[in-house]
Computed example of a mutant assay.
Amino acid sequence: MTDPVAAAVSAAVRNVGNADWSSLIQPFDVSRFFSLNFKDIWWTSAPENLRPLRGKVELFAIYDIIGSEGLPLVPCPRPDVVLELMEATDTRARRAVLEQRAPEVGEDCDDVFVGLQDSPHAGRYVAFARDAVVAFRSGAHSSAQAMVSALTTTILDEMKKSFDAVWRAARYRGEGDDFPEILDEAPPYEYWVLAPLWHAYEKAVAGDLVDKWGRHSSIHKVSDVHYNVANSVVSLMFLAALLDFIALGSFADV
């Protein structure tokens, strides 16, 4: 079906003097226009690991899990793992998926790190990231999680002098803060990193350790509650997302 607005504009351009400009304000379904075209554009330019999921998962569902749970889903893991995570019924079920698919996710993260070795912005961190993968593969998941948490802290400390308001909102999370509205305004390639980053800085207090990976908890609240396979997997996924973003050169000083 021809878009009535596009047709009217085309007619007006062909015959400016005699064009019926009232035709430009014919009613049309704005919601349908944006829902169809935005999704088409988004999926066409989506990260490689998400493109195969077109038609299998809803776009808003991907954003919801990344935003509500802080689960990094870009640029890894592989599509079938992402699909399994999306189909899981709740957070606990998703953590079970991560535990079951841990070896594959670890390989996916390592593939990302290897691909960034020559990056002028992210390359110098790759050797440390791959050391974490070595520990992970050997079954030393706590060592991998500790290494990733320390490396993440180093990277973010080096980045902070270049932070804009959006990054500051994600990095400097106060106790009890709600998810910042400003993060919702970030472009997708930043949102993939910013939402998990905000969750990673959730501050755990004594007796209330969060059962999800957090940079803050990993550094300041070491315990067998927080150090586990699922959290180790998530930490590697976040590091892959962070380094992949840094490689874009958005932070020139990094």
Rank of each mutant, 00 (worst) to 15 (best):
F34S: 13
N49Q: 04
I25Y: 14
K39C: 03
P52Q: 09
D40A: 11
A61E: 15
I41K: 03
S31F: 01
S45E: 11
T44S: 12
P27D: 11
P52Y: 07
G55Q: 06
F60G: 04
G55V: 07
K39H: 02
D29H: 09
P52N: 12
L24Y: 07
V57Y: 06
S45G: 00
W43A: 01
P52W: 06
R54P: 02
F38K: 01
P27G: 07
S31K: 09
P47M: 03
S35D: 13
L59P: 02
N49H: 07
F34D: 04
S31E: 14
N49M: 08
L53Q: 02
P47Q: 05
D40M: 11
D29K: 10
N37S: 12
F34Y: 13
P27S: 13
G55D: 07
I62E: 00
R54M: 06
W42A: 11
S23I: 06
F38W: 09
I25Q: 12
D40T: 06
I62C: 05
P47C: 00
L24A: 08
D29V: 08
P47D: 12
R32C: 04
P52D: 00
L53C: 02
A61M: 10
G55E: 04
S45I: 04
L36V: 13
I25T: 15
L59Y: 03
F34E: 10
R51A: 11
R32E: 15
A61K: 15
L24M: 10
G55H: 11
W43V: 00
P47A: 14
A61S: 15
P47G: 03
S23W: 01
Y63A: 10
S23R: 15
Q26F: 03
D29M: 07
Y63V: 10
E48R: 12
R32T: 10
F34N: 12
S35I: 09
L50F: 10
Q26I: 05
P47N: 05
R54W: 04
N37T: 05
I41Q: 07
A61L: 12
S23D: 10
L36Q: 14
D29F: 04
A61R: 15
N49A: 08
Y63G: 06
L59I: 05
F34I: 14
P27N: 06
Y63L: 11
F33L: 15
P52G: 09
Q26Y: 04
P47K: 03
V30A: 11
I41E: 08
A46R: 05
W43C: 03
K56D: 06
Q26R: 15
V30K: 03
L53W: 04
A61P: 00
S35G: 01
W42S: 07
F34R: 14
S31P: 06
V57H: 06
S31Y: 04
A46K: 11
K56I: 01
I62T: 06
R54D: 03
S35W: 01
L53S: 08
S23E: 13
R54I: 01
D29P: 02
L24T: 04
S35T: 13
F28P: 00
L50M: 10
S45C: 01
F60K: 08
N49D: 03
V30N: 02
F38L: 15
F33Q: 13
S45M: 07
L59D: 00
P52F: 06
P27C: 03
S35Q: 13
V30T: 09
I25E: 14
F34A: 12
D29C: 08
F33G: 01
A61V: 07
P47S: 13
W42V: 00
L36H: 08
D29R: 08
W43M: 05
